[in-house]
Amino acid sequence: MALEILRPGLMTTVQDEGRTQGYALGMPPSGAMDRFSYHVANALVGNPSGAAVLECTYLGPEIGFSQATTFAVTGADLPVHLNGKEIQPWASHRAEAGDVLGFGFLRSGARAYIAVAGGIDVEPVMGSRSTYTLCGMGGFQGRALRAGDLLPVGADATGTPGRSLPAALVPDFAGPAELRVVVGLASYRVTPDSLAAFFETEWQVTPDANRVGYRYRGGLVEWVPRTQPRGAGSDPANVVDIGYPIGSIQIPGGTEPIALLNDAVTGGGYATIGTIISSDIQVAGQTKTGDVTRFCPVSIDAALGARQEARARLAKAREAIEARS
């Protein structure tokens, strides 16, 4: 069983839960940017948690099925077509050999997920099938898909067509996004007024927004004047090198904040003024160029609470899918 990539879309990669075992060594985890949509896609086709799917950014691919199978599309709101006929997203469908999956234009969100029964069966690298394109590793030949690629799919999995996620549990990606942020580690480098203004600003996602990081525009920050310490660079945004958690926000030059995401470098010399909480990374990953984003400061306890809520929401989605199959 294989998927034939007829058109690749703009940026379609193989992703799973991420390469977490290398994180302590400084290896970015990669993995699906929108975890909820990723997990639901697998649940819909009956895959075990952790199976690899395709993540498509902005523009959907066109894919031919070499054999009959079951698939589902979740995530960004874009019309899903099977042989040119529109079908339901957030639901599992049967495809026959020779059928073609295609997409219309993006309406909201940024990333769609395509799960196929059996999962995308590329060789795991360091415990994960996720593609890390900057280093050319993982996924399908370490890169975004191209026309003509033949993607192996796990054998002996017929899947379960006819499953769906109840509409009430489908996320809405339209409208401004609010991303919760834990302030720190180097927020002391920004003046208090400027830090307060950061959280009042309506930031806009620039075209420089991908799996590595999202760059925003809309305001500027003022640094606390100081003589740069030994080991820090000369830009006032520089500090002596620190670790960059996933979701950390730095502002080189003081004008355009960059949120570091799944494929980002894990340390460096820019002051990180806050970190997007883990459960809101997926919210960031569904914003697109031009979308408005606000950052909202929260405590660590609130962040941990939000993580539990996100887990509960996913558990509820899985139960609802099981109940409707």
Binding site: Y58, L59, F105, L106, P207, K288, T289, G290
Partner: peptide, 9 residues
């Protein structure tokens, strides 16, 4: 002819 995705034209 519409923009299929956002960006700079």
């Amino acid at each position: 002819v519409a923009a299929p995705f956002p960006g700079v034209f």
